[in-house]
Design a protein around this nucleic acid. Structure first.
Lengths: 199, 199
DNA sequence: GGCATATAGTGGTCCATACCAAACTGACCA
DNA sequence: TGGTCAGTTTGGTATGGACCACTATATGCC
């Protein structure tokens, strides 16, 4: 819980890494409130600006968000707007009575980059499944959907499934026991809390 | 050149907006050095931390980059890695002797969002052309390529062209007089310097 | 009970100051 | 000429203090 003042790693980075690690481990659940800037400063024996810098770098990576008068809270791991706008595309399509289909553009297991890893609250280099599909309505390509899923949560997902025909969420539900309502909630379901993991 | 201390807009935002405006107008060319933190602080009569915060927010949007001992410099307007990785896809494809083709997913004129606008050094809400295509090799979809071009630089681009058959860069070269070598340089060519604009 | 008021806590902004390492400048000397 | 060494400038880090607007809670009054 103490910092290394003689380390070449800046103090605010040490604090940020520590908080990020606690978020990733589930010590701070989604929506939970982190210690306030002043509390962190007191706890680590640094100035408020240093503690603030740590929280700011977390917020910059999308891990947290802050509100004046309330505090800093762990953000739900949301994938970029891309996915969200595309699920609304699917909504529109269904409402218009069009026949939805898909075309797999990319499907592979890769290590997370910093961006995606931070958004999903995963340690760097964690393997994820990348599934990228073109969405078509009545054969007309409408959008590209890119989905990132931590590999350890759905091992072997890419083998034995044709995602140009099968629904990703249907496969996850049937073969992996996930019950999902909305696509953009899937990323949260992919990141179990500490309680779920120990269960 | 003076700031409004009584404005609800924070001082560092005022300075940041002013610098951004000067970058977009070409007053600071690409690669040019911005005033140092201490110089800005002196010039605007603020503390160095405030001036620093302005420069940091610029860097955060990708407009500038800083190096210790040297200064802060205007970054070349680069589009996200997406485009770069995809052009390398095309490279790979050609080397393997595959037949490249395209399928237009999206093609429209939209106002820039904050992200893209900042990367291209454009004022907010500037209209850009969004062209999104699926790249195919021997009929196999390989990647999605999304291109953003300031609309005023290629007016009417989307009318009368079938980009599932025509090469975007070929059209830009023939119809708009641009001579491009590499795709990932196009974005720089789309952003003329002040000298080119007055010419 | 219901409502206004005081109080404390929070993030956001801003200040003045200080030290550090990297990078450049220029004077100096071999 | 060519290299060394001190001094300057630069962004990066860190301190400690201050005020603001917003939020929630507790207090007191009607």
């Amino acid at each position: 819980m103490t910092l290394h003042h003689d380390s070449p790693v800046p103090l605010y980075v040490q604090i940020k890494d520590l908080l990020q690690q606690q978020i990733e481990s589930g010590a701070y659940a989604i929506g939970a409130r982190l210690p306030s800037e002043r509390e962190l400063a007191r706890r680590f024996g640094v100035s408020r600006m240093t503690a603030r810098q740590a929280l700011q770098s977390l917020a910059q990576e999308g891990l947290t968000s802050s509100r004046v008068g309330k505090g800093t809270f762990v953000s739900p791991p949301r994938i970029n707007q891309e996915l969200r706008t595309l699920t609304s595309f699917s909504e529109d399509m269904r409402e218009r009575g069009m026949a939805p289909s898909s075309r797999v553009v990319r499907a592979e297991v890769i290590p997370t980059d910093r961006e995606i890893g931070a958004r999903l609250h995963l340690a760097p280099k964690t393997e994820i499944i990348l599934l990228s599909r073109v969405r078509l309505a009545d054969g007309q390509p409408l959008a590209l959907e890119t989905t990132h899923i931590p590999a350890h949560l759905c091992a072997g997902l890419l083998e034995g499934h044709d995602f140009s025909r099968e629904s990703l969420y249907e496969v996850l539900r049937v073969h992996y026991g996930w019950n999902l309502v909305w696509a953009d909630q899937m990323m949260q379901a992919c990141m179990p809390s500490a309680a779920e993991r120990s269960a």
